[in-house]
């Protein structure tokens, strides 16, 4: 059997002399969705940052296609879409300018594609409004519009549902599920339980591991 796309082997993470988790194993195959759950401060965000290569683990390693992550930086960068808690949206730039730059970092998108993505997240008519005038939920939608553009297979999303209204949550759940069904992979943290789950859904509860 071929090695999983993304894999963590006996991963430990320590922050400020506090052990968040240790000897954590997980693997992610195409088509799977992993929801990381757990109480506040249990290391959900840290785990996501480890998987995205933003942080180095205290012990253990993250592997991409069976090889250590630090040898695979370019490979990871090509395949990863990371939206952190702070999503990289500049308040002084308009929604379109923000998206155009974030796309250019990975693969440039046309103006039409960006407008379509903004329309898909319900921001038609807000394309040229500076983002600091948008509400928190609308700003989150600008960040999430990246998921509707030509996107790489692995999505790592930290609290993507924050500040979204009920309709936005349902729409995003459906979109994530469709991405997994199409062979993509999603790792996300959220506190609410997903109603729409793809076939490859599984959950990792960091709170229960510690107990």
């Amino acid at each position: 059997m071929s090695s999983p796309f993304l894999e963590a082997v006996s991963l430990s993470c320590e922050r400020d002399w506090r052990l968040l988790f240790e000897k954590l194993d997980l693997s992610l195959l195409p088509g799977q969705m992993l929801q990381v759950a757990g109480p506040n401060g249990s290391g959900k965000t840290s785990l996501l940052r480890l998987l995205a290569g933003l942080m180095q683990p205290t012990a253990g390693e993250v592997r991409l296609s069976g090889r250590p992550l630090r040898e695979q930086r370019a490979e990871l960068a090509r395949n990863l879409l990371w939206i952190g808690h702070a999503a990289g949206i500049k308040g002084l730039l308009t929604a379109e300018e923000n998206l155009a730059w974030l796309c250019a970092l990975h693969r440039p998108a046309s103006r039409e594609a960006i407008w379509q993505a903004l329309a898909a997240v319900g921001l038609r008519g807000f394309e040229d409004v500076p983002c600091h005038t948008l509400s928190a939920g609308q700003q989150r939608r600008v960040a999430l519009a990246r998921l509707y553009l030509e996107a790489p297979p692995l999505w790592i999303l930290d609290e993507p549902f924050t500040a979204l209204d009920r309709h936005g949550v349902a729409q995003l759940e459906a979109h994530l599920s469709a991405h997994c069904t199409g062979g993509g992979m999603v790792v996300l943290t959220t506190h609410h339980s997903l109603t729409e789950r793809p076939a490859g859904y599984h959950e990792l509860d960091l709170g229960q591991r510690a107990a």
């Binding site: 995205a52 290569g53 370019a74 960068a77 990863l80 990371w82 952190g84 990289g88």
Partner: peptide
């Protein structure tokens, strides 16, 4: 963070 995870 977006710069660090980008391929550039």
């Amino acid at each position: 963070e977006q710069w660090v995870v980008s391929p550039h």
